[in-house]
Each structure stands twice: as C-alpha cells, then as structure tokens.
C-alpha cells in the first residue's frame, strides 16, 4: 500500500476482480488507454465511475453513437451561431474563439487536475473513428485551426474505453491500448456483486435465485443469456413480490426480467 492515491482497489459499490484491478493500475502506470471488452451487463461502464470515485478524480463521459465523429470530441466550430449573430450584429462576432466549443476530449485535456475520461462504446461509431483519435490519445493534444491554438493536456487523463465488439477496432489503435476482457463473473464473485446492491437479502433467496440464474445461463439453446444487471433486477423483483425462495426454481416467477426473447421463453417452456 505504498501508492495509495494512485492505485485502484475497487470501491464500495463496485466489485472488481483482481485481474481487472491490476489491469487498471498497469494502464495508469504506463499512461495508456485501457480498453475494456466483455459481455453486456458485466459493468464495463460502471468501472470508470468506480475508478473516478475511488481515486477522487472527476469523471468525464463521452458517449459514442453511430453518428459521432472524432472531431466532435475535440471541438466544434459553431458556424451557424456565428452566422446568426452576424445578422443581428451581436457583440463578439469577430472573435472566432467565442464560437469554438470544446468536446469531451477537449474538456478532459483542459481540466486543471487529472480526470478520468470514459469513451463509452467506441465500437458504435464508424469503422474509422478510432483511427481518427490516434494522435490525440497518443500525444494528448490537438490543434484548433480556427484560432491557431494547441490544446494540450496539463495532466494526462486516465482513459477508459469500452467496446461491445460490434465492430473490430483497427490494429493501430489496439496497439496503443491495454486490453482487458471482463469474464462473466463466477458464482462467488457474483454473490459479492449482488450483495453490494442490497442492504438486506435473505441467504436462501439469494442462493435459489443464483442457482436458477446459472442454470438458465447454462442452457445451450438460450440465445440471449441473462446478465448481471438483469439478475439484480430479478432479485429485486423477487424480494418485492415476496416470493418464497423454494418456489423460485419451480415456478420461475417474473422470468421476463431475465429472458427477453420469445424464442428463449419458448425454449424454457419446452424444458419444464
């Protein structure tokens, strides 16, 4: 515990496996972006929140959508506003800097102290998107053509990038990242995770629910396997519904919380 301030140890609300913790710490030490992949619902996005909390650093989230362009993250030159203002002779029209708006990456660079930057679901964007950010993530700086200004990070942000593997990321981009694949948690880790989310939870209910959950995940023909977050919702539903634990496996109450596809529900019916 010599580097208390800079090492990540998980947090009160987030249970991380040791492998994940060491990946985070190594990424921080090597000053490289950490790329996180894993099944949906394994807490990829929550990781950044947990890091920001446990290290006491501000969190900046850049949500990537299919239309997001790399430029959006750096800065946007609001030409329309400028055109509009000029029609009415507003003050400040000749000052271009007035119309430069920093994106999330720009914000992270401009911050006075080190921040945690989450680039969420990078695979949603166009195939070339990650390539357009290579220089910026490497050098942690970019150039604003309109104002001839270079924005350079004062403190290199801790960059966490998540991906759902919808698209393959370019090799050049991958080479610069530290990679971690979040495994689906096994029963022991899962128990810990679930307990973090509940103040009071009956042991028997938890055990029955978990058994049923892993049994469901083990059925080969089920297409969309239920995830951690769905398990938590389900246990909450069971708790609120006052379901007797011994009935869980038999009756599978509120099963719609776990299985969302018709095919999967039919598959389950066949087995009962």
């Amino acid at each position: 515990m010599t580097m208390e301030r800079t090492t990540f140890q998980g947090s009160g609300e987030y249970v991380a496996s040791e492998e994940l913790m060491s990946a985070v710490n190594i990424a921080i030490q090597l000053k490289k972006p950490l790329l996180i992949k894993g099944e949906p619902g394994t807490g990829k996005t929550m990781l950044a929140e947990a890091i920001s909390k446990s290290l006491g650093k501000e969190l900046i989230i850049w949500n990537i959508k299919s239309t997001t362009k790399a430029q959006d993250g750096l800065y946007v030159y609001d030409t329309i506003q400028r055109l509009y203002d000029s029609q009415f002779g507003e003050a400040g029209v000749d000052d271009i800097a007035h119309y430069i708006k920093l994106g999330k990456l720009g914000e992270a660079f401009k911050a006075d102290s080190q921040v945690v930057l989450l680039i969420d679901e990078i695979d949603k964007a166009d195939l070339e998107f990650p390539n357009d950010l290579l220089w910026e993530l490497d050098k942690m700086e970019f150039y604003i053509h309109e104002t001839k200004e270079t924005v350079k990070a004062k403190e290199r942000p801790i960059v966490i990038i998540t991906s759902n593997a919808e698209k393959e990321l370019p090799d050049a981009f991958l080479r610069r990242c530290i990679f971690h694949y979040i495994d689906f948690p096994g029963p022991e880790l899962m128990e810990e995770i679930v307990k973090v989310h509940f103040d009071r939870l009956e042991e028997n209910l938890l055990k029955q629910a978990m058994d049923t959950f892993y049994w469901l995940r083990g059925i080969r023909d089920i297409r969309k396997k239920p995830s951690t977050s769905e398990l938590i919702d389900w246990i909450r539903a069971l708790q609120l519904g006052g379901i007797a634990p011994e009935k869980i496996r038999q009756e599978l109450p509120f099963i719609g919380v776990l299985l969302k596809k018709d095919e999967d529900l039919n598959e389950l019916k066949k087995r009962r």
């Binding site: 492998e19 060491s22 190594i26 790329l35 991958l174 530290i178 990679f179």
Partner: peptide
C-alpha cells in the same frame, strides 16, 4: 502470475487470441 496477466493485457488485444 502477474507477468502472465500483464503480458496478456499488453500484447493480446482480443479474447479470441487468449
């Protein structure tokens, strides 16, 4: 063991290659 994980996270960029 730490070396194993460290090497993997730095050198391997896809779970298909684990």
């Amino acid at each position: 063991t730490d070396f194993y994980y460290m090497g993997r996270m730095i050198l391997v960029k896809s779970e298909t290659d684990f």
